[in-house]
Design a protein around this nucleic acid. Sequence first.
DNA 1: TTGACACTACGAAATCCTTCGTAGTATTAT
DNA 2: ATAATACTACGAAGGATTTCGTAGTGTCAA
Lengths: 130, 130
Amino acid sequence: MPTSGPPRPTDAELGILRVLWQRGPSTVREVQEALNQDKPTGYTTVLKTLQIMTEKGLVRRNEQQRAHVYEAELAQHQTQRQLVSDLLNRVFDGSASNLLMHALNSKKVTSHEELSQIRDILDEFERGGK
Amino acid sequence: MPTSGPPRPTDAELGILRVLWQRGPSTVREVQEALNQDKPTGYTTVLKTLQIMTEKGLVRRNEQQRAHVYEAELAQHQTQRQLVSDLLNRVFDGSASNLLMHALNSKKVTSHEELSQIRDILDEFERGGK
DNA sequence: TTGACACTACGAAATCCTTCGTAGTATTAT
DNA sequence: ATAATACTACGAAGGATTTCGTAGTGTCAA
């Protein structure tokens, strides 16, 4: 068994990861400016958090340039899977149907497109077995 | 606008809420013994956490008896909705289909019953508009 | 070369989370 | 009545999270 991957990211860490997924590898400055669109965040706050995330294995750091370049260790979909799996177990006793029901109900609107997209996923899933 | 409800429960708090949802209104002792099935937990640890949860509005306390009786402030389904809505926004950019896909993939097995149950939910949702 | 500027490293404060020990009070059994 | 027992309240320790200031160092233009 391989070593069991990075831990669940905290709220602030997730905010940074979202930027990295969207922008790709980025400097502290770039991340900070992206976060500032939403909410004022000090430069050294972002720096420190990224340093901690490096220790945790949530991001990887390239030190070739003076301004280090950070990138997410896991792809977005891997973290998404980790977090939804966590919620499924901790809150929904593993019931995916229950989870979906609450997801649909919690949204203001759900388009017909999205619903048929979900049906496609179900078909795919039922056929492929996997 | 009404005051915006209790905060997101932490991990330990969620463990206690699960017991309260399952057992109904319970004393500290009862909660502690239930938690001990899974993982050794000190009595005063449970007590203290329940006191904090009372301050946060996560549980309600009935002090009629010497051993106070606690019950969850929100029904299980309300908290489930809160948490899934949170995850949907913070991690999935509101895409329910994306969330479902990861939920299905993250499970070891998904029965045909569960899949058709999910289809029922979709039908219900599409028809009712609600 | 030297001053302005940008970047990293680090320490530390403020808050939260989790855990547990101790003190105080009430109940129960002998 | 008194000792054992059960319960609440409270403080505090230890760790994690989030934030920011300061120091040190490198880069670049005038």
